[in-house]
Design a protein around this nucleic acid. Structure first.
Lengths: 341, 341
DNA sequence: CTGTTAGCGCGTTCAA
DNA sequence: TTGAACGCGCTAACAG
């Protein structure tokens, strides 16, 4: 590797000046004459000089590396977010280490250790389904390594977060069902230790209240996030003695499982039951145009989270205050899901 | 960053030995006495020593960084492959830079430059749809930076590749349709400058020949890889004066577009037309259980490609010969797609 | 087996 | 405005 690469010494030798001057010029320092600076830049371009980041970072004792922890990279939302993260980080000169917790708390814990050992300058994290306490992040705090939660955050206030408007999204989704004359609306909820699912539940409840629909505990089916959970939820729902004509699904994977099973048992969407769910590529494929979906802008979230993190890294001295950025979601209404139109 | 980190000098000072001895011990060199080695390792653990890779890599003039170029990270196949790449690379101590060509040749070209500037030790690449010549990879060759193609490779023999058995997969898919009594089988083909789509086309053709079915040029619809292409292909297909009862789709996105449109115009799958397509999460959601799919093991491919690349990097001196690894795919038959059972 | 010495390439003192 | 010198933390060469 690294063979025949030109260094600041090479160009210093040619120009018969000192390498420190070259370094300054290359870093656009004001403490160097315009004339020599131009000369240096010209020669550098001519020789195809490329800075050795290894050496530069060693000297500055910075790694220019960000750690990213997501439950699973192949989930559409996360891969989209990662696309945004990579792009933003790259533009700012950062490399990204991507790690999957695979929804395991133990794995998440050990990933944090590994990132620490790799001396990342900051961490972006979307916590696992199992994560209920946050002691494993203490190491980051101790070492003064900033981190930003995105999407799946935790309930501690003093953090930086980039989130979607879960409450609003859920509220609007439920309202949308009500607008379509659904009167008995079930909710397939996600793990309640995750704030996002708590908030989606609250939004659902709030929309019912606002429309004077009595909230029934038995219409809420809380589960894990597997396709099979969707199926099981539908089965439980079917055991009720009355008919459900609306369903707000807090997670796309659950929704897919539910929809598949509903089709299997010949229940028509949206005629028999109208559904609104959080969306991803898969879900809109499965049910389009039978279903309205909540669009989760993964890319935007990734970009915003990365920008925030880099800001925290850069302004570290000035103790950037914690910030929570909310990215708006939008409800995509499919025509045929409007039963009364 | 990097504050208060213990270095080999710290532990050398405490133990009153030289830092080079500590370095050797930490690198498990045989040229150090067991007794002192144990002493050093113990003290290192006690102080929580963590190697500074920056310094180490600088000294060794290696970056321990791999570049990855994919068309689009959010495509399920690629995000799965990346999961495998990340994991394998990480275990071997490599960091990964992920870049998206977004199917643009120009972007791919500039990404290669950027990776070069970042002094990656090797590159994994799945070429863009637009890529028809490979001069932009010459820089890698010149600098002796190994690269491995995965999935979307190029037609130059002297490269290393990790591929799926495109021909076989296509052959089996077509054979499967024939076994289901399909007699008039269309093929939705991908860009023919990509070897994988060429081979899938060949496999289709070959299966027809083997079963004494006359190949008709007009049954092959070649297009780009957008959902809308699937729709357009179906429309063209419908313009034929006879009925098509089988369809082999060389790409999942096209397949999704096709299936959606077929449903829209009330053509039943698999009763009216049986379909086999390359699969991903979305497609199996859309059409399961109406469709048989070819399973693409993205994770395996990622792992294999990364292992091969690291082998090439490590054995560089010994001129590891070029190798092509074929990962097997499997045909997943859905029950209801067997019309005659 | 261990210590000495000398960099990897760069950025930042301190002088001049 | 520039140069000389040093050191980031680690490893490799050469002695001993």
């Amino acid at each position: 590797m690294d063979n025949n690469q030109v260094t600041i010494h090479d160009i210093a030798a040619i120009l018969k000046i000192d390498s420190s001057t070259v370094s300054r010029a290359l870093n656009n320092s004001p403490r160097v004459a315009k004339k020599t600076k131009d000369k240096i830049l010209k020669k550098a371009a001519e020789l195809g000089y490329q800075r050795n980041h290894l050496a530069s970072n060693l000297r500055k004792s910075k790694n220019f590396t960000l750690g990213v922890i997501v439950p699973r990279i192949s989930r559409h939302f996360f891969s989209t977010a990662i696309a945004g993260i990579e792009e933003t980080a790259f533009k700012a000169g950062y490399t990204v280490i991507i790690c999957q917790s695979l929804e395991s708390f133990e794995r998440e814990k050990s990933i944090v250790e590994t990132l620490l050992a790799n001396r990342v300058d900051g961490v972006l994290i979307s916590i696992s389904m199992e994560t209920k306490n946050y002691d494993h992040l203490l190491g980051l705090k101790q070492r003064n390594i900033p981190y930003v939660f995105f999407d799946r955050h935790c309930n501690i206030n003093e953090n930086s977060n980039v989130l979607i408007d879960d409450f609003d999204a859920a509220f609007n989704a439920t309202q949308h069902l009500i607008d379509q004359k659904s009167t008995t609306i079930a909710h397939f909820a996600g793990p309640q230790n995750l704030e996002i699912y708590k908030n989606r539940f609250k939004g659902y409840k709030s929309a019912l209240e606002k429309n004077n629909i009595v909230f029934k505990e038995e219409l809420v089916f809380t589960s894990s996030l597997m396709e099979n959970d969707g199926k099981l939820n539908v089965q439980k729902m079917m055991n009720l003695s009355y008919k459900i004509d609306g369903l707000f699904c807090a997670n796309d994977v659950i929704a897919i499982g539910a929809i598949k099973y509903l089709k299997e048992i010949n229940i028509k969407i949206p005629e028999d039951i109208a559904i609104v769910g959080f969306s991803n590529e898969s879900i809109s494929s499965v049910i389009e145009p039978a279903l309205s979906t909540i669009n989760q802008p993964g890319l935007e979230i990734g970009v915003a989270a990365t920008e925030l993190l880099i800001a925290k890294i850069t302004n570290e001295g000035e103790k950037l205050k914690n910030e929570t950025i909310i990215i708006k979601t939008s409800l995509i209404e499919r025509k045929s899901s409007l039963r009364n139109s």
